[in-house]
């Protein structure tokens, strides 16, 4: 634990040193992991999340609905490099901020004339992981101004509001208690630069929406349905907190 605290303090100091007078520099959840979990994430052959990326690759090439595949219109998945850095993003056609998962489903429904995937389905999380993976190493850079500004404000308000029978806001843990231990678990900033993540606790891959639902359940608050507008706007806020952090998808977390 001491080593972990030191590592986090060191990375905070390193970031603080390079970026002048930023109040809380973003730190990836990676920095809070045990070395063996970091090693698992770093090795593409051992990282369980790569299985979902591979499944996403298969789905990418598979014709659906009207017989078109993602590949037919978009080319190789590599063409998606950079796309994942921008989501959730304002959609002109929808008139609201949408998540990457919703963008994929939009293509599926409107361009492939196929049934959209369930928000927490293995298919959708795999395609999302595939697209995000293409941006690995690139800095997250979601827009919080212009038409996205009101969604950003609502996301921020949600993040800072106490809720549930335990009366806790996201910020009570992920801002005020960073580095403390909740039970045996060090509390990180709750950054989402690694999502979708392979979470060892779940033995499964999950989207940001699933993580929000998990943390909501922990404080015994009303669940925020995955893919609901509030959850997407909260995701926008979470991503904005990590603007500048390198995308790690697929990250491995405890």
């Amino acid at each position: 634990m001491k080593r972990l605290a030191l590592a986090v303090a060191a990375s905070l100091a390193a970031i603080a040193g390079s970026a002048p007078a930023q109040e809380t520099p973003p730190v990836s959840g990676y920095q809070f992991l045990l070395p063996e979990t970091q090693a698992l994430q770093d090795d593409d052959f051992a990282n369980p999340g790569m299985l979902w990326v591979e499944l996403g690759g298969k789905l990418w090439d598979e014709p659906a609905g009207n017989g078109t595949s993602c590949q037919n219109c978009h080319g190789a998945p590599e063409a998606m490099r950079g796309v994942g850095t921008r989501y959730p993003q304002w959609s002109q056609t929808e008139g609201r901020v949408i998540s990457l998962e919703q963008q994929v489903n939009q293509c599926r429904a409107e361009r492939q004339q196929a049934d959209p995937f369930g928000y927490s389905s293995q298919e959708l999380v795999s395609l999302s992981a595939l697209v995000m993976h293409q941006s690995r190493g690139l800095p997250m850079s979601v827009a919080t101004d212009g038409p996205a500004a009101s969604a950003y404000r609502r996301g921020k308000a949600y993040y800072e509001t106490r809720r549930g029978q335990l009366n806790l806001a996201c910020s009570n843990c992920h801002v005020d208690q960073v580095g403390s231990r909740l039970r045996g678990e060090p509390i990180s900033q709750g950054q989402v630069n690694g999502f979708p993540i392979y979470r060892q606790l779940w033995q499964d891959m999950g989207s940001v929406g699933r993580m929000i639902a998990w943390c909501n359940d922990a404080v015994r608050a009303e669940p925020l349905a995955e893919g609901s507008q509030m959850a997407v706007e909260l995701e926008l806020y979470l991503r904005s907190l990590g603007n500048g952090l390198a995308i790690e998808t697929p990250a491995v977390r405890r």
């Binding site: 809720r163 549930g164 029978q165 005020d176 009303e222």
Partner: peptide, 24 residues
């Protein structure tokens, strides 16, 4: 405080319906 109010429901918001209306 970050410590939950174990015997009070005063001012609580958005409590899941499994727990609503009663303290912990």
């Amino acid at each position: 405080t970050i410590m939950p109010p174990y015997g009070s429901i005063k001012g609580l918001a958005d409590v899941d319906k499994r727990y609503r209306g009663r303290p912990i």
